[in-house]
């Protein structure tokens, strides 16, 4: 109560006043808390990386760079190499990224450009309900529903994706794959047949798993394109397609690309579903139907029963995975900078 009196009193003499004691304390506490949490995060990451490096040093000394180019993993002979895993990690991620981006960006355009809304509006008009107080919200609601459905894909546990892959995807695509192999086996992508788990089912499931990331971020980027650009394009006589592909997508490309890089990171590190679907065979093959292996799957499968010297080797492999993820993120940032520079002249 006394504080209001104080304010009234000081207000008579001067408009400005020094911050109250409470404000100073709150400010300091908030600042310290922010600093602490920021540093805890940084220290946490540094600590994790340091521990992995420390645990991996014995293996690095013993196997050196040959570890990256070796192709056998034989604990009985103490021979360890992870080239097949590196290949499998990159191959599966890039393939799923291609599929995921195509579908994800398409879904984002569909959701942000009002296609669904127009369709529903048109359908309502047939029944003359389009200005009815109840039905008039339907187009917007349906779009929200669809968007939430896609984002819900991110909430499905990885194991469920894996099981779905084993029991639904693999049996469903096997006849097609084996037919392709039979008819077009000369083509490198179809050079083996699909015997249960393999690259293609893993890639298909992985692309669904990264879809929500790409769609959500791309949609945000597309909706935040200034409306005046769209109006200007229409005003110049551009068709809808021309507007989307020549104006809106390029303007939103920075955001879309950010989503793609984020999805790539997710694809590289995805473990459970891949461990169940990729076949876990140390093979390097461009064939889509051949079983392969990934670094994350190797780690998940081998860790629980690893002997001490194997743990060092696995830590080395974990470090390689970390390095790949880091390189991808840096490359993404660099490309992003380059593209946004070239975009600068456009608007």
């Amino acid at each position: 109560m006394s504080t209001t009196a104080d304010i009234l009193e000081t207000a008579e003499t001067t408009v400005c006043q020094p911050p109250s004691r409470w404000q100073v304390i709150a400010d300091r506490t908030f600042r310290t808390a922010c600093h602490t949490f920021a540093w805890v995060t940084v220290i946490g990451i540094v600590f994790i990386v340091a521990r992995i490096i420390l645990a991996g040093v014995p293996a690095m000394r013993e196997y050196g760079p040959g570890f990256l180019t070796g192709t056998t993993w034989d604990p009985n002979k103490d021979a360890y190499g992870i080239l097949p895993e590196i290949w499998g990690t990159l191959y599966s991620s890039i393939l799923s990224l291609i599929i995921g981006t195509a579908f994800g960006v398409a879904a984002a355009i569909f959701l942000s450009e009002g296609y669904l809304g127009e369709f529903v509006f048109g359908a309502l008009r047939v029944f003359n309900l389009h200005f009815h107080p109840f039905w008039t919200h339907l187009p917007q609601r349906l779009e929200d529903l669809l968007r939430n459905l896609i984002e819900l894909l991110a909430a499905i546990p990885s194991v469920v994706y894996g099981l779905w892959g084993i029991f639904v995807v693999v049996p469903a695509i096997r006849p097609v794959c084996n037919w392709l192999h039979l008819k077009m086996g000369w083509f490198a992508l179809f050079s083996t047949d699909l015997s249960g788990p393999g690259m293609l089912p893993a890639v298909l499931v992985l692309s669904i798993m990264i879809l929500p990331t790409i769609t959500a971020i791309s949609r945000d980027a597309l909706t935040s394109v200034p409306p005046k650009l769209r109006m200007a394009a229409y005003g110049l006589g551009a068709t809808r397609w021309e507007t989307i592909f020549a104006v809106i997508l390029p303007t939103a490309s920075r955001g879309v690309f950010g989503g793609v890089v984020l999805a790539f990171g997710r694809a590289l590190g995805e473990t459970m579903a891949l461990a169940m679907l990729v076949g876990n065979s140390n093979r390097i093959s461009v064939s889509l139907f051949s079983p392969a292996n990934t670094l994350a799957a190797l780690l998940a499968n081998t860790f629980p029963e690893a002997r001490p010297n194997e743990v060092a080797v696995l830590m080395y492999a974990a470090l390689v995975l970390l390095a790949i993820t880091l390189i991808v993120n840096i490359l993404g940032a660099v490309i992003l900078q380059q593209t946004s520079k070239s975009q600068q002249g456009a608007h």
């Binding site: 084993i166 049996p171 015997s195 249960g196």
Partner: peptide, 25 residues
Amino acid sequence: NKMPNWAVGTKSKGNEGVTASVKTT
């Protein structure tokens, strides 16, 4: 070995994984 370098085969995780692979293939 607990996880030898097999000359053949696709690999599945756990008894349940092997069973699922055999059942569906």
